[in-house]
Design a binder for these strands. Structure first.
Length: 127
DNA sequence: ACGCTGACTATTA
DNA sequence: CTAATAGCCAGCG
């Protein structure tokens, strides 16, 4: 873990020349961009929408590459199954994710989305 | 080509 | 309630 500080930083991500990332990433990004403002979803839900029920990790991986995606991907709207901001550590600042969510009207309590179940946006409905 | 890692999830202890 | 374990898929050295 500790030595993994910059394993994926070299990701080609959205490199224009040559081959791009797998469609999986594009699908995830597209789905995340469809998340309405003030709403949140979970990795598993996105994965399920894509057909990979166990691909929740891949969704997180796609988010990692989303830093170079265009338009930008609202990764702050994607949280884990419990509504916890598990990915906040990967943001420019650990508080950026919470700040963004609160700015959209989503209240965060102890790194957890308040009324997560109510604010949960199901991507499967869009699939 | 093989093995490790990971922004997850569910199950078991 | 928390902790540990297993299953899962894809990218990179």
């Amino acid at each position: 873990m500790a030595s993994s500080k910059r394993r994926t930083e070299n990701l080609r991500a959205v490199l224009p020349s040559g081959k791009q990332e797998s469609d999986f990433f594009q699908q995830v990004w597209a789905l995340v961009r469809l998340i309405p403002r003030g709403r949140v979803t979970s990795y598993g839900a996105i994965a399920a929408c894509l057909g990979a029920k166990s691909g929740a990790r891949m969704v997180g991986w796609a988010m990692n590459s989303s830093h170079g995606a265009s338009p930008k991907v609202p990764a702050h709207r994607v949280v884990n199954r419990l509504g916890l901001l598990s990915g906040k550590n990967h943001f420019p600042t650990p508080t950026a994710m919470q700040e963004q969510l609160e700015k959209e009207g989503v209240k965060i309590k102890d790194d957890q989305v308040v009324e997560f179940k109510k604010l949960f946006w199901d991507p499967i409905k869009e699939c």
